[in-house]
Design a protein around this nucleic acid. Structure first.
Lengths: 344, 344
DNA sequence: TTGAAAGCGTTACCAT
DNA sequence: ATGGTAACGCTTTCAA
């Protein structure tokens, strides 16, 4: 049979509560046992090979010391992109020193509903799903555990702090770089999945805003499906754009590959900019100019903030006004951008 | 206040037990409620916005639907190596379809003791720490939850199934490849950390066995500390070896870098073989010949087996004799191995 | 088929 | 400073 607190208490000749206080850090009050008694208790626990029942404790205290990270695509580390690994590293760095366990929960990853976020298994949630549905936004807003979002513009969900790239600043940098190279007609390229994400819209809007401010025509948005043949036009005179700003490095990588296939020369015919400045940028041909997003630091900050929310919510404090953090994003200029094509 | 089963039961005019059966899948018995009543219950739950308390349930049932993965080095995804991501992918692939949550628990990652493995938070443990101490081996053996190990030769811990590379076969392949290139004097290179791992010893032994069987002299083991100057000798005549078999790709990568620094030409002066055949092999100069270890599949298999152990242990069955699986490892020949240097 | 009641092991509260 | 007691929310047995 399982050895319980009671057994230990009995053997040590003390009350269960004393054992709890000594062995399990004494929940709230200070330790209230003499050193001698504490030693006896510890010895008894050792003799009996006492193992605490964490579930009983978690149940009683309403705390699990677990934080869940919710990614978008079910869950697979994509070797082409370091994004997930970056996030995980930042999260672990924030959690582990405080002995919080990091969990990946399939129920939370699955599409639609965020139905299970408040079922008590997690003390807090780091929400990394930019594909926010109306339904889950609502669930997030009324959740009974602290939540922090990444990759969503401030105010996306009322009361939920966000940690997000400064898309406006990023796009201003991109546009300014392109202008300095003589570009005027720019397009935003996005994949059909990201197109529906909050950040997809945010970046499209940001690029538009930056272009307008610079006196350029409104950038067209190209939703790039499996068929990339639309890129073929950039090899010929009269192409509608001289520069493409892509939603992600991964997408930009595909664009580069397709351009090569269609005989479109980058950056001679068209300039291409990615987003994330991941290691992938160094391996493409040509090397990819990209906006640098400090993913790991964002994840670390977001998680640290989440921990502080957890602590204060346990103190019974009411949540303060939700803060949001924007991250300045530099443009890492590599070889995929160059002077605007002159013969179009 | 929290909405409990009782509240729902009250509103629906039924007993808490009925609600439990309908909403939470009815633990053991079949559903014992009429459709009409079930509907009423569901409606009541919806009205009251009932949220199950997972901790209470887990506590009661002694099941958490969580599996922990324990890595060696505290926890950081190393971008240079895809090992951790590979493991995680295999694990997720096995767990998620069955709705098991994957947890990374710092307390388990920290050095020494495996003190917390049986505290009820996890239904099973995937142990990926080759650095097995006597103490934790003992803890693992007497744990009250199912455990499965990776990267440990069969029988490393009594009763714990292992999923491991077939190091003997791998080394036989490596030696045979080297012999075909005219090599005779081989060394095994390992870092000071892995040197203490079970698999470190296993591979050293395997290489020795393979060399002996082939009639070669016993391979020396070189423990490579921070100072790689020992590699310098391979640029000069009279070097003691013509081929180095390294414990890991990462280590082999460092060896290649140091060789370049010391003017040692690979593979002209010395041949180098790595272990894992990770993407890193394609990016080194020269491209690294390496033993291919199917990490993701190993992790998948190990996790699937763990799940089956969990299921049978919940059925109250006694654990069968522990099975162990060895994985055949091909040698991926790239450019870091060549004919044995003739002028030494 | 349904309901009542008894715990699961721990911690919080309130006496002493 | 210490110990008794109750309660957390659920599931399971047992009786109806």
């Amino acid at each position: 049979m399982r050895v319980t607190l009671r057994d230990v208490a009995e053997r040590a000749g003390v009350s269960p509560m004393a054992v709890s206080a000594v062995l399990n850090g004494s929940g709230s009050r200070k330790v209230t046992v003499t050193a001698e008694k504490a030693e006896r208790i510890r010895q008894a626990a050792l003799d009996l090979r006492y193992q605490r029942n964490s579930m009983a404790s978690a149940f009683r205290q309403g705390r699990t010391n677990q934080v869940a990270v919710v990614f978008q695509n079910f869950g697979r580390f994509i070797l082409r992109s370091t994004y997930r690994a970056d996030v995980m590293n930042g999260v672990m760095e924030a959690l582990f020193p405080h002995d919080y366990t990091l969990s990946l929960c399939p129920k939370l990853m699955r599409s639609g509903d965020a139905e299970f976020i408040s079922d008590g298994r997690f003390d807090g949630i780091l929400w990394c799903r930019p594909d926010l549905s109306e339904a889950s936004a609502n669930t997030l807003q009324h959740a009974s555990v602290p939540i922090v979002m990444m990759h969503a513009p401030p105010g996306t969900v009322l009361g939920v702090p966000t940690f997000c790239a400064d898309n406006d600043g990023a796009m201003r940098r991109a546009v300014s770089h392109l202008i300095s190279l003589g570009h005027e007609r720019i397009a935003f390229v996005i994949d059909p999945v990201s197109e529906h994400s909050v950040e997809g819209h945010a970046r499209a809007d940001a690029l538009q805003g930056a272009a307008r401010r610079a006196g350029l025509p409104d950038p067209e948005t190209i939703i790039l499906t499996r068929d990339h043949s639309v890129l073929g036009r950039y090899a010929e005179p009269g192409a509608p754009h001289t520069a493409l700003v892509c939603f992600s490095d991964e997408l930009a990588g595909f664009v580069l590959e397709s351009c090569e296939r269609f005989g479109v020369k980058v950056p001679d015919h068209i300039s291409v900019i990615g987003f994330d400045s991941s290691p992938l940028c160094e391996t493409t041909t040509p090397r990819l100019t990209s906006v640098n997003q400090p993913v790991e630091r964002m994840a670390f900050d977001a998680t640290s903030h989440l921990l502080s929310l957890i602590r204060s919510s346990e103190g019974g404090e009411q949540a303060a006004a939700s803060t949001s953090t924007l991250y300045d994003c530099q443009l890492d200029v590599r070889d995929s951008t160059g002077p605007a094509c002159s013969y179009l």
